[in-house]
Design a protein around this nucleic acid. Structure first.
Lengths: 347, 347
DNA sequence: AACTAGCACTCATATCGCATGACTGCTAAC
DNA sequence: GTTAGCAGTCATGCGATATGAGTGCTAGTT
């Protein structure tokens, strides 16, 4: 069914997409002739365009208009023509600088990443942290703060540190603390966040004194292993409004999607499992992002994949640039983490 | 200059504003007659309207249109006619429920507040936490996590607990920790976040071993005492697009303002110092929120004022409802905190 | 002096027709 | 296979016209 495209057809298709990305007005045959094919006539190009339209790559908004690429054309384009292009020096500088600070928390790093990606690409950027089911709990600490208040600190193998203030009915005495710390580590240390059913059973057998505490801890750990909305980071929502073809209605719908973090998590996670990048153009009918392209890459911290970073933009987005930015930020985060969390020498 | 309004003028002005808030189309004399003044003729009302227009309270978009309220009219309206109105049962329920969970952190409480305010009012909601210059540091704890990683916990008098992961070059030994804890509390405990100049000097005199640590701590505390962007919480940005008169351009400008957290902090803080509520209509020329009204109330946690909560909406917003919501949420947060952080009996 | 009926006037909005011009598709010749 | 040339299509813009909502004003009434 899908025939191979001739070389000239490929060139013409690329020309249409390039032009349309440059400025989103339907591309005419003469425009293509002038800028790309001085040697053949516009009539010939028209014939080719007509075939490309028949094949589903191009769309004519109306009879006397030029052609615009279909989602299919973008997919072809993405598959065949794009690759990283090097960023401008000052762009690289900005990225580097945004990781210059001493970050203390993985959340801060993610926030910085999502922000810089959006800033440089000028598209809405999203990072979804995976359900961290396969993360190992290295250690748990309980620190007393006030009579009934304590801080629970969870340290995982990938350097992710999370803490929660909790309120207990018991008076939190030094004895209680030291017992609790021993107990917590006996129960949870070395286990994987994923399977809590076992732990839940264990609780039943423990002393009454610690039941409340253990209940909280299980609840907290659970909230990490299920996709909770804290694990979706967005930046630059309003850039969705900048697509020149956006009407207010569409914009509202798109922003609605962005507020639905569960949906976003669905869209972003489970992508690009083996590939470095995943690009989807169109085909988001289900979720209200009809005319969008989504480009994602795995997001690694400390060498470990922790989530998916990506960009939502118009189909006519600057794919190469986005790809480069995602790649460069990924590298910056990688080396940054290395310096922070481990003791290897600087490169 | 500003003459007292006759009773009938006040009634008519209120009618115009009420009608316009109900649905934003210019209000005609006959409409007012039908709904509010069965006993006088539309011609008479027209005369009154003309005077009100001369006085600057009303605007005629064009000759053959009805009148719409000016910012001045809204201000008059707000000053004279509004008060809390009781919320619907299910609205109160939603608010109560959103504070049902065991919150652990002041940030969580604020996030829940700003979200529920936006949800119920259907306007963009903002909470700005004050520069907490006058907060007392009750205690500081340093907990070792890994060889070079520690968690710094700051406990303040109002139950606000903040923590930060920090990386040190020193190996964090038990000895180092206990010395550091004593040192930190000697230097910082009991002092007010506001004046750090003294502390900065103190550092100079300390042992080399702790210089790095103390430097971080000062830096962290500083980041709280200056208005940092973490202290601005926003929810429901996209609701700005729902004002029926909003064009895409205006919407973009407004959303731009929302992304500028420093500006937002400026707009919101320093308001309503003694008043329970502050309402500003129009007069935001400087900041790109020309046609907006902003209503704010002091935001209290644990009885202590910690910031300002408010709503940004169209001039024709439902002032009474917003006022009620702010008030009700304030009460909910108050009682919630009471139960959580102190030991007084339930009411 | 306040009110009101009635009429003339204004002006935003909608609709229609028409001219324009940017492109295309097609045909016939190369 | 390519191309010149021409007829056909259709979005866009503009002006003219009709409509009607709503006012301001005047003159007469209470």
């Amino acid at each position: 069914m899908t025939q191979k495209l001739s070389d000239r057809k490929r060139k013409i298709l690329k020309a249409v997409v390039d032009e349309y990305i440059l400025s989103p007005i339907p591309v005419s045959s003469s425009e293509i002739k002038n800028k790309y094919f001085a040697d053949i006539s516009s009539a010939t190009i028209r014939v080719e365009l007509a075939t490309l339209e028949d094949m589903g790559y191009l769309i004519q908004p109306h009879t006397s208009a030029g052609r615009i690429p279909s989602s299919r054309a973008y997919r072809f384009y993405v598959k065949n023509f794009i690759g990283k292009k090097s960023l401008r020096k000052n762009e690289m500088l900005i990225i580097d600088e945004s990781f210059q600070k001493k970050y203390t928390d993985i959340e801060d790093i993610v926030r910085a990443s999502v922000k810089v990606i959006s800033d440089i690409t000028n598209y809405t950027s999203v990072i979804v942290i995976d359900n961290i089911n396969d993360v190992l709990i290295k250690e748990i600490k309980l620190v007393g703060l006030e009579a009934h208040t304590a801080l629970l600190i969870i340290i995982t193998d990938s350097g992710i540190i999370k803490d929660h203030v909790i309120q207990l009915n018991n008076i939190i005495s030094p004895n209680f603390l030291s017992d609790a710390n021993i107990l917590l580590n006996r129960v949870f240390a070395g286990s994987i966040l994923g399977d809590l059913s076992i732990n839940t059973i264990i609780i039943e057998n423990e002393l009454n004194e610690f039941k409340e505490l253990l209940g909280y801890v299980v609840e907290i750990i659970k909230s990490y292993s299920f996709g909770n909305e804290n694990s979706v980071f967005i930046e630059g929502q309003k850039k969705m409004l900048d697509y020149p073809d956006a009407t207010l209605e569409q914009a509202k719908r798109a922003l609605n999607v962005l507020e639905n973090k569960e949906l976003l998590a669905d869209i972003f996670s489970g992508q690009a499992d083996d590939l470095e990048f995943s690009i989807r153009v169109g085909k988001h009918e289900t979720c209200g992002l009809e005319k969008c392209a989504i480009m994602t890459a795995r997001y690694r911290v400390n060498g470990k994949e922790v989530g998916t970073a990506g960009v939502i933009g118009p189909e006519r987005m600057d794919y190469s640039k986005v790809m480069s930015v995602l790649s460069y930020v990924g590298k910056a985060v990688g080396t940054f983490i290395k310096n922070e969390f481990s003791d290897e020498e600087e490169r």
